[in-house]
Design a protein around this nucleic acid. Structure first.
Lengths: 201, 201
DNA sequence: GAAAAATACGAGCATTTACTCGTGTTTGTC
DNA sequence: GACAAACACGAGTAAATGCTCGTATTTTTC
């Protein structure tokens, strides 16, 4: 079994380059149609070099998903002080949504790994992990706000909210910046509407 | 330019077989990974025969999308008498949703063409048509219920509602029948919540 | 019943694509 | 500076896949 080589500085830079390139190509073509050769070319590197760092296309996607996961975690960390969960519902939803939209705008590949349903079976694992990370965050917040809610109901709600978010994300990021707020407002309305019945009256 | 041959009875049966087969294979593999040879095999027919009836994979998908469109129209026709649009909102939403879920359960390929975002550019046309047909129906109903709403706002609302629906459709149909109602209820809650602000108070 | 049109076959072609491998260069270590 | 390990190249390979084409059979037309 081949063991991981000890990466030197140059190698680490290359890996970053390759992930950047993958994000671009995934964003343009979608995961399925994205070719490893195209990713290598985008990174200004030969196909052989790509495979020096990533065992296969799947591993590349996995690493990219991992990157997104940590960026998302950071963005949420920044937007959350304790007590946020007690804000009025519309404000809370807005606080959850903004950072995710931002991350998505800065990382065009995100949606390709997060959203689409037409992925080969092999990719379901990393994709699921990413989805689950997001759903988990949502569930945490909901747990604080609605402590009475049973766990399974909480998870269902978080899952649905995440799926609604994912569904509208595509429209939000592909829409020109001028009209973007419009769609963000719709997303807000949808989520607030969905969650309102849970509010203590 | 080759003109369409005048199909005889046998040929028409074959086309139905092929569309059925395509639905199965698309459902199992997704559009991108579905191979035309697999579709032919599923139909119990040689690859050459497939291409006697459909110019290419895209044309096959197009024809299938068209079939779904008409089935959906029929299902909605059946569920709609005039006056339905004036029902209480939860009932109206339920009436819109049920037939679509049914069509989806009976035609597993539907979601593969309707939902996923990772489709090659060539397929966007038929997919768009299908999405647009659904959105159009929703818009019609909304127009009757909310006659005061400006057209653009109406279209936005219909689009969002459709996307929410599409997002949860996957979960609904892949979930075992025993738990299905649970998710349908969530979808209802989401849509009702989204539309409630439009109700005259 | 003969000519024509439609249907059917399936081996195989052309292309794409994930990935390899032999070879050469750069970087770190002693 | 010598040796090894990491990095880099890019032509090439094996497999997959959309689709063709020559040929053979069935159905329709007259």
């Amino acid at each position: 079994m081949p063991e991981e080589p000890r990466r030197q500085a140059r190698g680490q830079r290359r890996m970053v380059q390759l992930l950047d390139a993958a994000a671009v190509v995934f964003a343009e073509a979608g995961y399925a149609k994205a070719t490893t050769n195209a990713i290598a070319r985008q990174a200004g590197v030969s196909p052989g070099t790509l495979y020096q760092f990533f065992a296969n296309k799947e591993a590349l996607a996995e690493a990219l998903a991992e990157r997104y996961r940590s960026e998302l975690a950071a963005a949420h960390q920044k937007a959350f002080d304790p007590g946020t969960a007690q804000l009025p519902l519309p404000d809370l939803v807005d606080r959850m949504i903004r950072p995710m939209v931002e991350v998505n705008l800065e990382n065009p590949g995100f949606k390709a790994l997060f959203g689409s349903g037409d992925l080969p079976d092999k990719l379901t694992a990393p994709t699921r992990a990413l989805q689950k990370a997001v759903t988990g965050r949502v569930a945490e917040v909901l747990a604080v706000r609605y402590p009475e809610l049973p766990t399974d109901r909480l998870e269902t709600t978080a899952a649905v909210a995440t799926q609604i978010f994912a569904a509208l994300l595509g429209t939000i990021v592909t829409t020109p910046a001028t009209h973007r707020e419009r769609w963000i407002a719709e997303l807000n309305q949808a989520l607030v509407g969905y969650l309102t019945p849970l509010e203590p009256s």
